[in-house]
Structures are given as structure tokens and as C-alpha cells.
């Protein structure tokens, strides 16, 4: 492997100074699961790595309705956070199937989005959850919506001297559920063929149902057997990974659903629209036509899952398979 120096600043300021000093010759390293692999594969060759591990508090998770996470929060910490599982389920869905336990133990959310791989599993959920990110350099500090963060495959607005210091997820509206589906070829150690995240806020959290088995049946049946009880979508965000050069929102699809009465047919149309908005391409990991087809299937399923999570909040655990 290429040789490099390894620096371990103890404060954020120190890190910012070092970054400024070394400029393009340095790289930040968080868990290193991308950086070290990229160096080994000769994709990058920094002279200096600046580790964020010794800086206190960058791995904090704060919750007071909204959620604030330091960039050094590991996927494993997210996986285990009951607060996140309950309130920001899409994110839990994503880290649950990210890499392996070993990877999740060290890999961080900050690293995941900073690498900005089109396949980054936390990107779509963060888009769906309406996250904002805080970036800091010696000179400036700014907070931007995550939509503006990604600029291309492997590219972000991060400048050479920037550090991502915080990820903020706003407090969801009442009666909100979210879900992420990583469409993959095996159960672990896989990158998504497609990632689909949906967040839905409903106008109510309980429904009366003609069917006695209501609680047991799948949500599609529930939707059919609603007894005059209409459910409206108050807010929706649909985000797709590996469907375009960057993680993307399906804006047109969202528009179609926002403020509307939710029905099976409408969700189908929404999913179709999302598929039209996407620009998937062929790669060895999946073909464009299949990705597009899966958007149609999975956007609907994730919308259903989100509704289910509002109506049946006790079932927060995500099933391994949907059918």
C-alpha cells in the first residue's frame, strides 16, 4: 500500500488547521472503510491522513424531537439506537443491511455521505427524512439541505478544507412513518441494485376497518377495507439511490401524492412517476430497465411500509423480505 503520514488531531480546530495546511495532499479519515480501500485500490493517493477519531463528541447522537448526529456516529450505533428505529426508521433500515457488523462497527455516517457513492445506503433515507448537513472550514460554516450536498458520483460540495460536522434531521410531523429498501442480491455484504426511501405523514394514526383481521393483514388490504375512513397524505418525500448520478428526490411523484387521499391506485401512479423521473443506467451491478422497473415496485412497497409504521407502530422491526 502507498505510504502516508497519519495525524490524529484532538480538537476540531486543530483538524481544520491541518486540513488548511496540507490542502489537497491530505484526506480526512473517519472509519477508513472507504479511504483505506480506495488507497489500496490506487484510486486516491493522499500523503497525509487526518483522523477524526480523537476529536471528542463527533460521535454524539442528540434527540429532542429533531435528531442531531455527529459525523463520526457509526452505522452500528445507529442500528442500535431505539430512538432512531422508532422515529427515523428509514435510517435504521439502511444501516441494518449496510456491509457487515465489522464494517458497521467502524464505518460512519459522515464517511458514507462524504464518499458520495451513488450506492451510499444512508443517502436516500437522509433525503427522505429531510436532513440538513453542517459544513465547517477555517473560514466558514454553513448548513445546507442534503439535496444540495451531492453534486455527482463521488462528488459533493465539500471543499478541500471542509469538515462535515453535523447531520440534522428535523422533527417529523405527527403520524409519520418512513422506510428504506435496499434491493440487493444477497442478505449482507452487498451494494444496492437500487435503494428506495419513502417518508409519509398521514392525517391520522388510527383507522377503523371493516375487516376484523385488520391488524393482521397487509397494509394493501387495510387500505381496501377502510370503512369510510379516509387517509390523507400530509407530507411525502421519496428518495432513490443508484437511480441517477447522485442520490435523488422524486419530486414529481411526491407532488402527485401530497395532500391527496391515499389509495392503492394512486400509489401505483406515484411509483410510475418516480420511475419516469429517474435516470438509471446499466452497470455490472444491475441493468437500467430492471432498476426502473424496481422503482415502480419498491416505491409503492415502501409507501405501504411507511403507512404500516404509522398505523402499526409496534411493528418497527423491518422484515428481511417483504413478501
Amino acid at each position: 500500500m502507498k505510504k502516508f503520514e497519519y495525524l490524529k488531531p484532538h480538537t476540531l480546530d486543530e483538524a481544520l488547521i491541518l486540513l488548511d495546511q496540507y490542502g489537497g495532499r491530505a484526506r480526512l479519515i473517519a472509519g477508513g472503510t472507504d479511504v483505506i480501500v480506495m488507497i489500496k485500490q490506487k484510486e486516491i493517493s493522499p500523503d497525509v491522513l487526518i483522523s477524526l477519531q480523537e476529536i471528542p463528541d463527533l460521535d454524539r447522537i442528540n434527540y429532542n424531537g429533531s435528531l442531531s448526529m455527529g459525523p463520526m456516529v457509526t452505522h452500528r450505533a445507529i442500528e442500535k439506537s431505539e430512538i432512531i428505529r422508532k422515529n427515523f426508521s428509514a435510517l435504521t433500515d439502511a444501516v441494518d443491511v449496510l456491509g457487515s457488523v465489522q464494517i458497521r462497527n467502524v464505518a460512519t455516517i459522515g464517511g458514507n455521505i462524504s464518499t458520495a457513492a451513488p450506492s451510499a445506503d444512508t443517502a436516500a433515507p437522509l433525503l427522505a427524512l429531510g436532513a440538513r448537513v453542517k459544513l465547517k472550514s477555517m473560514k466558514t460554516e454553513r448548513t445546507i439541505p442534503i439535496e444540495q450536498f451531492f453534486t455527482g458520483p463521488g462528488e459533493t460540495v465539500l471543499q478541500k478544507d471542509d469538515i462535515l460536522t453535523e447531520i440534522i434531521i428535523p422533527k417529523p410531523l405527527p403520524n409519520t412513518g418512513s422506510a428504506y429498501w435496499k434491493h440487493q442480491r444477497r442478505g449482507a455484504l452487498d451494494l444496492p441494485i437500487l435503494g428506495v426511501a419513502v417518508l409519509l405523514s398521514l392525517d391520522k394514526a388510527t383507522v377503523t376497518c371493516s375487516d376484523l383481521l385488520c391488524t393482521a393483514s397487509p397494509i394493501s388490504t387495510v387500505l381496501h377495507s377502510l370503512e369510510g375512513d379516509e387517509v390523507f397524505c400530509k407530507e411525502v418525500r421519496i428518495a432513490l439511490g443508484v437511480a441517477a448520478p447522485t442520490p435523488m428526490r422524486a419530486i414529481d411523484a411526491e407532488k402527485l401524492l401530497r395532500s391527496k387521499k391515499i389509495s392503492d391506485e394512486l400509489l401505483e401512479e406515484v411509483a410510475e412517476t418516480a420511475a419516469k423521473e429517474a435516470q438509471p443506467r446499466d452497470s455490472i451491478r444491475g441493468e437500467a430497465w430492471y432498476r426502473r422497473d424496481m422503482i415502480k415496485v419498491l416505491v409503492k412497497r415502501m409507501a405501504m411500509k411507511s403507512i404500516e409504521r404509522v398505523l402499526k407502530p409496534e411493528e418497527t422491526v423491518f422484515p428481511v423480505r417483504l413478501w
Partner: peptide, 13 residues
């Protein structure tokens, strides 16, 4: 106490 892949883990950490 936690598993890590030592092949991509910097020794200095």
C-alpha cells in the same frame, strides 16, 4: 470487544 476488519483498519488507531 467489537469486531473489526483488521485488513482495512489503520494500525495507529
Amino acid at each position: 470487544g467489537k469486531t473489526v476488519n483488521s485488513c482495512i483498519f489503520p494500525a495507529l488507531e
